[in-house]
């Protein structure tokens, strides 16, 4: 199975981290993965997108060229561009806490989750990206949530931020549950 993902957000929302965690989880699951960053965009301040291609075999085209089948829009300002980058049959996960004006696009399924508000309920708005990532892997079946949890724990331990592990794992689980509810709807 091959996935082409685009994780988009505004500065500080951790879109690049979502991409990186996805990649590290792929190693755990012995999948091939390539990550590229948006070209021509500042890394801080503005909007950014982390592109990830996942495959069970060697990856040919490493570039996500408006053919993502799994995409995330964390903020209003990047919503339209991200939606345009999804192929027909693909799914866009939208942070409905930030994106207020939904645009219909035939052939693209949109899953709305208020992840910023959910993160605030957990006590730290900065884990909104992790909630969203939990929802993405759960709804698509692209990776196991356990693999993401493992990658999260590794990264936080390396950065000596062990005390943040619990809240991040809670966030991941919350995302998984939210997606299960959303899919059942």
């Amino acid at each position: 199975m091959k996935y082409k993902c685009a994780f988009s957000g505004s500065g500080g929302q951790g879109a690049a981290l979502m991409a990186k965690l996805t990649c590290l989880a792929c190693i755990t699951e012995s999948k091939q993965v390539v990550m590229t960053q948006t070209y021509g965009v500042e890394q801080r301040g503005g909007d950014s997108t982390g592109f990830v291609v996942i495959s069970d075999e060697a990856i040919g085209n490493p570039i996500v060229e408006n053919d993502a089948n799994v995409a995330v829009a964390m903020s209003e300002s990047i919503y339209q561009a991200t939606l345009d980058g999804v192929r027909k049959g693909g799914t866009l996960f939208v942070n409905s806490s930030m994106v207020k004006n939904e645009v219909e696009r035939p052939g693209v399924k949109q899953v709305h989750l208020p992840v910023s508000e959910m993160a605030q309920e957990l006590g730290n708005v900065r884990v909104a990206n992790i909630i969203m990532l939990g929802a993405v892997v759960s709804a698509t079946g692209m990776l196991k949530a356990d693999s993401i949890a493992g990658a999260l724990t590794d990264i936080l331990t390396q950065k000596k931020k062990d005390k943040l592990v619990d809240i991040n794992i809670q966030a991941l689980n919350k995302g998984v549950e939210a997606a299960e509810k959303e899919v059942c709807k």
């Binding site: 990649c23 091939q32 390539v34 590229t36």
Partner: peptide, 9 residues
């Protein structure tokens, strides 16, 4: 340079 700056397994 594009390939150089990609991160991959």
């Amino acid at each position: 340079g594009v390939t150089c700056q990609m991160t991959e397994t």
